[in-house]
């Protein structure tokens, strides 16, 4: 039903304006992708120079502000937990029984050796709050029609000066995102695929992150299972929960 409305709405707006406004598209992406809370199991495959590793984890999150991740495999990472509250991040390692706050320059470290930094995970402000977006055209991508959006930072404390976003014009799922430096140099690209419908939302199950300045095949992020709007006990999002 929701999908129907979405499509219907899209149809209407498209019809009435020919091309939707950028903020409107972002709004719709938001509506499609975000939920009050979600629980998902995912795998992250990191292509190293020598081998590829896959790390699986289970994440509980509420909005963009709170997230709790527990690593399930490989055995070495099992039991490692990560808690994000607003702009703070803690990691608990069971072998040392220490909870360490990841702050300052440590945020710039890569997450588990991937092309993603902790900081990339931390910025939870809405794109519309930090960027001015304009639609610059439409392009076809993997057989889908997309709107191409250009976002320019309107605040100066974001990591990327501009972004480009390709959004599926029917499903309102981003299919590609590119992050740029102030100079206009492309820094990172994420490509989304395997778009499926889950509980009435369109969701890309696979995302490939790639640091464009670095050689390598990037990091592949896959959703194994996802559930939206579940009952989540509040205690999960406390530092005490890390040690349990």
């Amino acid at each position: 039903m929701k999908l129907f409305i979405t499509i219907l709405l899209t149809g209407i707006t498209t019809l009435s304006f020919g091309q939707p406004g950028a903020d409107e598209i972002l709004e719709k992406v938001d509506r499609n992708m975000s939920s009050e809370n979600r629980i998902f199991e995912s795998s992250m495959t990191i292509h190293g120079k020598r081998n590829s590793r896959t790390i699986t984890s289970k994440t509980y999150s509420v909005g963009d502000k709170k997230a709790f991740t527990e690593y399930l495999s490989p055995p070495r990472e099992q039991g490692t937990k990560m808690l994000k509250l607003e702009n703070q991040l803690w990691i608990y390692s069971p072998s040392t029984d220490r909870t360490i706050q990841i702050a300052g320059h440590m945020l710039r470290q890569s997450v588990m050796g991937s092309d993603l930094s902790y900081e990339d995970m931390m910025d939870d402000r809405k794109l519309t709050d930090t960027y001015n977006a304009v639609v610059v055209g439409s392009e076809e991508m993997s057989g889908r029609k997309t709107w191409k959006l250009e976002l320019k930072a309107k605040v100066d404390n974001v990591a990327y000066a501009s972004r480009k976003l390709w959004v599926d014009s029917e499903r309102f799922v981003p299919l590609r995102e590119e992050l740029y430096a102030k100079s206009g140099q492309l820094l990172k690209r994420s490509t989304m695929s395997d778009v499926v419908q889950i509980e009435g939302r369109w969701f890309p199950k696979t995302v490939v992150y790639k640091d464009m300045l670095k050689q390598g095949d990037g990091t592949e992020f896959k959703i194994i299972e996802i559930q939206f709007n579940q009952e989540l006990p509040e205690y999960i999002f406390s530092k005490a929960a890390l040690k349990r």
Binding site: I46, G48, N51, R53, I55, R76, E77, I91, S93, S95, T96, D97, R98, I100, M106, Q109, S110, V111, M112, G113, S114
Partner: peptide, 13 residues
């Protein structure tokens, strides 16, 4: 606090 051979975060007492 360091990183493993594969780049994961490593913690050790």
């Amino acid at each position: 606090i360091s990183s493993t051979m594969d780049g994961s975060m490593a913690m050790y007492n």
